[in-house]
Amino acid sequence: MNLEDELRSALRRREPSPDFTDRVLARVSAAPAPHAARPWVRWVAALAASVLLAAGAVEYRHYQGERAKSQVLLAVRIAGGTLHKAQRKVQMLHTAHRSVS
């Protein structure tokens, strides 16, 4: 006796109940159709993803625009302050020069 041969014999395939196939087919018929049979689901998912992407892109561009605007305003404010200081210095120098002469 060879153990491997005995294992092959002991573990040989066996058939399930005679009505097994019919029961599988009945359950398949009762189950929802597989995803492949519903291509519209993929189209809807793809459309939804596209809309989300587009909305995200628009929102991002809007955010970038707002950020650029605030940066420009800040730059203008800084430049304005610096200009004001310079103007005051010039006025002070001018006043001093007048009083000397």
Partner: peptide
């Protein structure tokens, strides 16, 4: 919801079940 595949598809699937059910 859509139901079972076409008759030909069901036939093919039934053949697959019979072919592999013992395994």
């Amino acid at each position: 919801p859509q139901r079972a595949p076409s008759a030909a598809g069901a036939l093919d699937f039934a053949g697959l079940v019979r072919q592999h059910q013992a395994m």
